Simulated scan of single mutants.
Amino acid sequence: MIDLKQAICDIKADQLNCVHFESLQWQQFYQGNNGLFEKVQHAKPTRAASQHLLGLLTKAHIESLSQIEAHRSSVAAMNQAFEQQLGKEHAANFHYQDGEQLVLVTHLWLYLQGYLNMDFSLANDHAEQTAATLVSLKGGDTQVIRTDFMASFYQGKNVTQQASETHGFIHWLKNLFR
């Protein structure tokens, strides 16, 4: 049985730009989810860790998105007050922790979907929905944020393809010497 951090490292998701194990977002994610990750591994030990991780990240994404949706109006009002009182430059210094958590979870979740060779269109739809939610709170460009999320999807896909190509070459080489 492995912990959540090891599962992230095993699929090489720790190479994502947004994954910093010492960051507050990672610490909160880890503390909130590692116990459940260990519990599901114990309950279904024959399943691959990546499958448990998919369930956990799906759950975390839904919960994080729901948390933000529940507080959307109060967060928008708070951001507006900061901008009016402090100006845009100083207001940008305040960080919305739930939003930052959603960004981390979304990158991990989409990376894993790519890693598992899941459907592009579903991943793209989730990336777009999440980007639109974040833009509604803090502003920005939905397409830029969606593209950034999808880069994680493709990074996961590339890791799997490289492993497959390496495995295929090694298999071919072994067959050559049989």
Rank of each mutant, 00 (worst) to 15 (best):
L102A: 15
A163R: 15
H171R: 14
W109P: 00
S136K: 07
H20M: 01
T130G: 04
E100H: 12
K12V: 05
F169N: 11
T142D: 01
Q28N: 11
L86W: 04
L116W: 08
Q67P: 01
F153S: 04
G87L: 11
E63C: 07
A163Y: 04
E165Y: 12
Q143D: 13
A81Y: 04
D10K: 15
L56W: 08
E69D: 03
Q27N: 09
Y30R: 13
D14G: 11
Y111T: 09
N33F: 12
A151F: 06
Q80C: 08
Y154L: 15
A7L: 03
L16P: 01
L108T: 06
Q80W: 05
Q101N: 14
S64V: 04
G139L: 09
A92N: 09
V144T: 11
Q84N: 12
L36Y: 14
H95W: 06
G99S: 04
F37Q: 02
G139H: 03
Q143L: 10
G156T: 05
I2D: 07
V40Q: 13
H61I: 01
N34M: 08
A60D: 00
E128G: 09
A77L: 15
L36D: 08
A127W: 01
G35M: 10
T142L: 08
E22K: 11
H52D: 08
T46G: 14
L173Y: 04
L86P: 03
P45I: 07
